[in-house]
Computed example of a mutant assay.
Amino acid sequence: MQGDRAVTVIDSVLSQQPGPRLRAACAEAFGLVDKSNVVSRLGKLYGDEDPMVRAAAFSELVRIDSTNLDYYIKTSLNDPDFVPVVLAVDKIGEDTLRQYLPVLRTEISRGADIDVDIRRSIVDATRPFLKANTHDTAALEILIAGMLDDSYIVRREAAEIYRDLLGENRFNMVPPAKTRLNERRIARAIERYRRNPYATIITERGEIELELFFDVAPLTVLNFIELAESGFYDGLPFHRVVPDFVVQGGDPRGDGWGGPPYFIRCEYSDEPYLRGTVGIATSGKDTGGSQFFITLSPQPHLEARYTVFGQVLEGMEVADRLLPGDRIEQILIRENHQ
């Protein structure tokens, strides 16, 4: 489709006042047009009330309208939602914009007052600076702050940079990951689930029956059961659908960035990713939570990288029909297969 015609079509879609998912898609579509006449349109979406839309518009604007990059970064760094902030921090690292390092140093010093994903991104943003100059004082100060962070995830990220770029082993400063389950709860679960439990994911398009691999990933399965039985998943969308790859859901934000207020540890195994295998989505080691995915075809490249915790027994035709935005109505847990 020609650029001007595409812009007219996207304008028409936006005039119907669609939901945030479609508005974000329109921002991405404007980016594909890649013409100067879309900048003002993207600018309007950049001021959208929904962070998913603002994030999508930011990603396109910093590429198309680089002359105003400073404005976009400063605006996103002050966004009330953490996702645009993370994207701005990532852009600072990607383009090695050293003038922002003092800002990042101030931000990470706020500790738990800012989202852990922001702190992780700030630490990660030091990589290109330290790769260019291992004595970069501002970047090193951020890295030190990362090593002193309360979060295991942030400290580990900092320790990996020390190892990879500075040749120093600081992993003795990384505390063990906290567990939400005490020994008594784990012992009760082992007694209860001598046989693997089962789950039924009830969706708008039908039901998907799973065996949950307690014998392979017990902590992951217990977390999934706890969330399901609390009603956490009720009404949440499948926000990501990639044909012949995966369907992914379980995000309360609906944009791929959400989850419960904690992380769970990875439980790697030699279980293969076959068609219908169920895994935990992460943004790095030990960063799982509530998001899960079902593979639509064998995916050997995921093996030993993402926790396998189940397998579809029935209903793969339902998974095949899922579209972005289709919702989970309820997840039922059973101790025996129907």
Rank of each mutant, 00 (worst) to 15 (best):
D4F: 09
A6C: 07
V7L: 08
T8R: 13
V9M: 09
S12Q: 14
P20S: 07
A29T: 00
V33I: 15
S36W: 12
S36D: 14
V38C: 03
S40K: 14
L42S: 00
Y46P: 00
D48G: 12
P51I: 13
A55Y: 00
A56C: 08
N68I: 02
Y71D: 09
T75G: 00
N78I: 05
V85W: 00
A88N: 03
K91P: 00
T96N: 13
L97M: 13
Q99V: 12
Y100N: 02
V103T: 14
V103S: 01
A112K: 15
D115L: 08
D117E: 15
D117G: 12
I118W: 03
I118A: 01
I122F: 14
A125D: 02
R127N: 03
F129E: 01
D136L: 07
L140G: 00
I142E: 04
I144Y: 12
I144M: 07
R155F: 08
I161E: 03
L165S: 04
G167H: 07
R184M: 07
R185F: 08
I190F: 14
P197L: 02
P197N: 03
T200Q: 11
G206V: 01
I208L: 10
E209S: 06
D215I: 08
D215T: 04
L219M: 13
V221H: 08
E226Q: 11
F232Q: 06
D234W: 05
R240P: 04
V241Y: 05
P243T: 05
V246M: 06
V246K: 00
G249H: 07
G250E: 03
D251W: 09
R253A: 10
G256M: 13
G258M: 06
P260T: 10
Y262Q: 08
R265N: 03
C266P: 02
D270R: 14
P272A: 12
G276D: 01
I280Y: 05
S283N: 11
G289L: 08
S290F: 10
Q291C: 04
I294T: 02
T295K: 08
T295M: 06
Q299Y: 10
Q299V: 09
L302Y: 14
L302S: 04
E303A: 10
A304R: 15
A304Y: 07
Y306M: 05
T307Q: 12
V308Q: 00
Q311T: 04
V312I: 09
M316S: 03
L323Q: 15
L332C: 14
N336K: 14
H337W: 11
H337G: 10
